[in-house]
Design a protein around this nucleic acid. Structure first.
Lengths: 137, 137
DNA sequence: CGGGATCCGAGACGATACTG
DNA sequence: CAGTATCGTCTCGGATCCCG
């Protein structure tokens, strides 16, 4: 089974070798899917701007439904990337923020997002080139 | 050199502002989905090790079906991340490799994957903590 | 070996309605 | 405001067969 109760750095290093996303049942694969899911990745990227409330996120991630946002937030929370803070008041006030691990992860995600955004002209050009080839070929 | 219409930094800045994954119909969003898709991200990470043939990839990305691998490769190829080279011989020999853009992108993806693999103990601990809270709460 | 075509079930997803 | 519950749609994805 998974022996992952580690406190010192040596054990951390050895434990890391046990996780391989390319392997069939590896838990790292599902975690990767939680992070890179259609909406999760945008939630993670969105929270990178700072703590946000539910409806603020709903507006920031255009097109997401309440159901999908709630679902994505739950998965990210379960994996320890997102923190949920409830302030009992009226009207109810719930704030979502990144945990330290969430911030590290979000930084990588944002790096990927910004890299893609910056190279979109190149991607769109590749699209057209590919489509032209399909017609002639 | 395959430059994409931009020589000065002003155009770069303006072009970059045009693509926002958080916006509804932005093409960058679908590109992001192609890259971070369930199998695509593993294909991209797998090809990072070097050029590979179809069945080699099929074995490396454990659990992927022929259909899904072919589909992921097509999308990555259309977006200009992956190059396909056919050698007419018998038996047929087809090799897949990363384009320059693909290598840059794969590096980011790989960084994310390795970061997650390294922190899996922390994630699994968060899972257990979360599940315990659900029972008591 | 490297795929394409087809069928089909499971789950993702969106819209709506309802609750604390 | 911050969700949960329910339902219908529709895409994803696996299994299988087939072809160059």
């Amino acid at each position: 089974m998974h022996e992952v109760a580690t406190t010192n750095e040596e054990d951390q290093g050895l434990a890391a070798l046990k996780f391989d996303v390319f392997a069939r049942g590896c838990p790292a694969r599902s975690t990767l899917e939680h992070v890179t899911g259609r909406w999760s990745i945008l939630v993670l990227g969105g929270l990178d701007a700072g703590p946000m409330r539910f409806n603020a996120l709903l507006r920031r991630v255009e097109g997401v439904s309440e159901k999908m946002l709630a679902q994505a937030l739950q998965a990210l929370r379960r994996d320890g990337f997102v923190h949920r803070e409830v302030r009992t008041a009226f009207p109810p006030n719930v704030e979502y923020s990144l945990t330290p691990l969430g911030r590290e992860t979000s930084a990588k995600v944002r790096g990927l997002i910004e890299h893609l955004e910056a190279h979109m002209p190149q991607v769109l050009a590749a699209n057209e080139h590919y489509d032209q080839e399909q017609i002639s070929g």
